[in-house]
Design a binder for these strands. Sequence first.
DNA 1: TGGTGTGAAATACTTCACAGCC
DNA 2: GGCTGTGAAGTATTTCACACCA
Lengths: 214, 214
Amino acid sequence: MSYTKTDKIPRATIQRMAMYLRTLERMGRDGVKLVSSEILAKACAVNSSQIRRDLTYFGEFGVRGVGYNIDVLIASVREALHIDRPWDCALVGVGNLGRAQLNHREFRQRQYNIVAAFDSDSAKIGQKVSGLEITDVARMRSVLAGRGVPLGIITTPPGFAQQAADCLVECGVMGVLNFAGARVFSSADVFVENVDFFNHLYALSFYISQKDRA
Amino acid sequence: MSYTKTDKIPRATIQRMAMYLRTLERMGRDGVKLVSSEILAKACAVNSSQIRRDLTYFGEFGVRGVGYNIDVLIASVREALHIDRPWDCALVGVGNLGRAQLNHREFRQRQYNIVAAFDSDSAKIGQKVSGLEITDVARMRSVLAGRGVPLGIITTPPGFAQQAADCLVECGVMGVLNFAGARVFSSADVFVENVDFFNHLYALSFYISQKDRA
DNA sequence: TGGTGTGAAATACTTCACAGCC
DNA sequence: GGCTGTGAAGTATTTCACACCA
């Protein structure tokens, strides 16, 4: 059957798909044309059957006895993740991190276009960052009205994260990337991804200390 | 037995511990003195027995029929993660993101002290960011020699991530927080945590598209 | 021959359900 | 009465191992 059973795909699979894509893109730039699950597995530090299993959630892309054509595989993964088209984003909170994101060229390279930036600090409103004018967060509704921006990026201080999320959801975003340290809540039909690198620092501290005691 | 069986703790548990800590700290600031696993579970959007199970990997911190004293629990979690003491960090790559990190006050608040910042761009070397002078990456060895800095933070472009990691490992770091999009490899005794928010954007794109097709 | 795709087995993780204690 | 700590049950995810096919 050619239909992809789109439910029950493990969350971990989605994350690995993103990693595979990055690795494949790099390999492609290095001139690789054909790749086996074993080779890709080495490069991604995962098990090769893990890769084959992950891919089967979306279809059959390989040739038995041969491997995967890298261009076909890259296109297939992009399609599977639905990133074979541009995605508009609205960013809230133009502090250090927000500014860094606005200047980050990879967003545009990967077709994530930040089309509006908001802040509540009147000293910042009207400034331009990376060619984009900072708008008063109070005007978010009118600015985003009817534009159907699907993604919100929260780079506010933790205390303002929930407000920012509520505001974005009211404006119709369907997914939120949250860089503020605080967890935000939303109705179940809005997806929230939290990026909290202190969790990673904590994990490092833990694992390092673990090792020492061995 | 009072000894904590430190192996076989699920990685997911460590990540959740970090989340619990954040939530508990916020509750503590709000004046909460006593917390049940049920309450904490609601606030973290997880199952309450998940929390109880996670905590038992490290010890017994609660009182049956009562709950957890929040100050005791916070201190216990900090101790469990080994973040009840300062950690020195060296940062490599002072671009947009590196600069944002250097200016990020929460590092210091959480006792992660960035004690050195390196870049290879001669235009940047000698500049000060947040009171810290940017040093030539070529001098990393002599600067870090004998200081026993345990953590490295990589905020270089992807193409330089591996070099940065190798360099940091040579200088004796035991853990690396990698913000560059590229995966880095190291000997097994060095821990690497990858922070790649494009993975999260990809996940959002996927889940949103999923929902639409329902 | 060599590498995919996939049932089946193994492992890992989460949740239930309740004894035990305050 | 209420909530922790934890065996046991239930789910989910990963890995094995091999049939199948270019």
